[in-house]
C-alpha cells in the first residue's frame, strides 16, 4: 500500500516504507542504482585546491561531496593540557546540500558526525598533539577542521573521514618561534612542515534492510528505507580502530564478521588512493 505524505520539507513524496520497490531489487541481489549489495560507489579525491586554507581536500563518494578546509592558527593552550595543540573538527550539513536540512544551528546528524570525528581523532591519536605545541603553556597551534557538505547523497560519515584525512595530509604549517627578548612571535612563512600523522583511518558504513540484508555505502534514499547503521573504521594495518552501531536491529555475528572483512578490503583500496593523491 502506498500513501502520499507531505514531508517536513514541504515536498510530496511516496511513503517508501512499503518498500516493495526495493525488495524486488534485493531479490535479484542488486540495488536500484545497479550496485551489488556490498559494492561501494566510485570515489574522487582532490587535495590542495583552496589556497586560503592551510590544507584542503574535496571528496566525492558517488554524488555525496564534502569539502574539508583546515585553518591553522595560534592560540593559548587549555589549562588542563598546557603542552598540547588543539584540533577542532566541525561538520556542516547546511540546507545547500539537501532539502532534508533546515537553516539554523547544526542538526542532530551533524552533531553526531562531528562528535564521531572528534572521538576518532582522540582515540586513535591521529595527530600527535605534542607536535602542535610551540611553547609550553604559552602558544600552541589550533587546527580548525571544517567539513562542508556540498551535496548530500548518503554516507556522510565515510566521505567526512576520507576528506579529513586527505586534508590533514595536505596541511603545511609555517615555522613559528617565540623571540624571548622582545616577547614577540616570529613566523617564517617560507619554511613549512607537514603534519606527522600517526595513523591513517578509513571508515566504511553499512546499513541493514529488513533485518537480514546488509548494504554498504548507502545513498540518501537507502538511508531512509533502512534501519540500523554500522560504521567500521580500519587503519593501514587492517586492525579495527573504531566501530559504532547505535542499535536499531539485532545483527548476527556472521554478518558483522562479513562487514569487518569488507571494511578491511575497502580500507586497503582507499589507502592506495591516499598514496596516489598525496604522493
Amino acid at each position: 500500500m502506498r500513501t502520499v505524505i507531505k514531508s517536513s520539507t514541504g515536498q510530496l513524496r511516496l511513503n517508501d516504507k512499503s518498500d516493495d520497490f526495493y525488495k524486488l531489487h534485493l531479490k535479484e541481489g542488486i540495488r536500484p542504482d545497479g550496485r551489488m549489495l556490498m559494492e561501494m560507489r566510485p570515489m574522487v579525491l582532490n587535495v590542495g585546491s583552496i589556497s586560503t586554507a592551510s590544507g584542503s581536500s574535496l571528496v566525492k563518494v558517488g554524488n555525496t561531496t564534502v569539502v574539508c578546509g583546515i585553518k591553522a592558527e595560534l592560540t593559548e593552550p587549555n589549562a588542563s593540557h598546557p603542552g598540547k595543540g588543539i584540533v577542532v573538527p566541525n561538520v556542516e550539513l547546511s540546507p545547500l546540500c539537501s532539502p532534508k536540512f533546515k537553516p539554523g544551528p547544526p542538526c542532530d546528524q551533524a552533531q553526531v558526525v562531528t562528535k564521531f570525528l572528534d572521538n576518532l581523532i582522540q582515540s586513535t591519536n591521529l595527530i600527535c598533539l605534542d607536535d602542535l605545541c610551540v611553547e609550553n603553556d604559552k602558544l600552541v597551534w589550533i587546527l580548525y577542521c571544517d567539513l562542508i557538505c556540498i551535496d548530500y547523497d548518503g554516507n556522510i560519515v565515510d566521505a567526512s573521514v576520507i576528506s579529513l584525512m586527505a586534508a590533514l595530509q595536505n596541511v603545511k604549517l609555517p615555522e613559528v618561534k617565540i623571540n624571548e627578548e622582545c616577547e614577540s612571535v616570529e613566523v617564517n612563512l617560507k619554511c613549512t612542515a607537514t603534519l606527522k600523522l600517526c595513523s591513517c583511518p578509513v571508515s566504511t558504513t553499512f546499513r541493514v534492510f529488513d533485518r537480514s540484508n546488509i548494504i554498504a555505502d548507502p545513498t540518501s534514499m537507502e538511508e531512509e528505507l533502512t534501519e540500523g547503521q554500522l560504521t567500521i573504521v580500519t587503519d593501514q594495518q587492517g586492525r579495527i580502530i573504531y566501530m559504532e552501531r547505535p542499535g536499531g536491529v539485532t545483527l548476527q555475528e556472521e554478518h558483522v564478521e562479513k562487514c569487518m572483512k569488507r571494511a578491511v578490503i575497502r580500507g586497503a583500496e582507499v589507502q592506495t588512493l591516499y598514496m596516489e593523491v598525496t604522493g
Partner: peptide, 20 residues
C-alpha cells in the same frame, strides 16, 4: 560558546597577520 558544536578558544591568531 555554542552547545551544538565543539568548544573553541575565545580567540586565535592567524600566523599570516604576524608577518604582514
Amino acid at each position: 560558546t555554542d552547545s551544538r558544536r565543539l568548544a573553541v578558544p575565545q580567540s586565535s591568531l592567524d600566523p599570516k597577520s604576524l608577518c604582514p
